[in-house]
């Protein structure tokens, strides 16, 4: 993860890292997760699901901090995050 300015206690803080899973066929393309992801880590993909919507996909694999907002805001129960191993903070 990249910071604009490295916090002084960066070495003591573990930034959580999440992996986002999309259940594509449930998605109705509302865009809530994309719009409100605090890390701007999601976008609507080009692919179509069976209903004709574009399910979201991760932009950068390392951006997700496992905050769970997408999971909570998704009205379709179609996306969720699980905690992955921590990533290194770059200077």
């Amino acid at each position: 993860m990249k910071f604009w300015r490295t916090p002084l206690d960066a070495d003591k803080i573990k930034v959580p890292h999440g992996e986002t899973y999309v259940i594509k066929e449930r998605c109705k393309g509302c865009g809530f997760c994309v719009e409100f992801c605090p890390k701007r880590a999601l976008r609507l993909s080009d692919e179509f699901n069976i209903k004709g919507y574009h399910p979201p996909e991760m932009i950068g694999k390392d951006e997700c901090v496992n905050c769970g907002l997408c999971e909570m805001i998704c009205p379709e129960f179609a996306i969720y995050c699980l905690e992955e191993e921590e990533v290194q903070v770059e200077g």
Binding site: M72, C74, E76
Partner: peptide
Amino acid sequence: HPMTPLLRMDRIPHIWCPTCGIGTAVS
């Protein structure tokens, strides 16, 4: 999905329209 034990997943997708907020309230 972590909500699986709390929801009747056999009934999902639900009937609510795209961009309806009810699903979020349920979540």
